[in-house]
């Protein structure tokens, strides 16, 4: 997750923080946009982190044959 903090922070800054700082009205539409723009990247970042962690585990620890790894 640490490696994806910068893309995640950049994404949230431009899609949520900047519009709020620019005075966007925080109405139902914006709240819906914010909910999706926070939830989906967090899910994607978590899934990618798990994949990267598994990849490191396979490469560094050698517990699983590389032919079994799906990447």
């Amino acid at each position: 997750m640490r490696r994806l903090v910068i893309p995640l922070a950049s994404y949230l800054a431009v899609t949520i923080v900047v519009p709020i700082l620019n005075g966007a009205s925080i109405d139902a539409d914006f709240r819906e946009h914010a909910a999706l723009a926070i939830a989906l990247p967090l899910i994607i970042a978590t899934m990618l982190s798990l994949v990267l962690r598994c990849q490191r585990f396979v490469i560094v620890e050698g517990h699983v044959s590389s032919s079994l790894a799906p990447w």
Binding site: I6, P7, A37
Partner: peptide, 14 residues
């Protein structure tokens, strides 16, 4: 849009 943009951003960053 969010899924495509954010996944691509992560892939490019990595």
């Amino acid at each position: 849009g969010i899924v495509v943009y954010f996944s691509s951003l992560c892939a490019l960053y990595l």
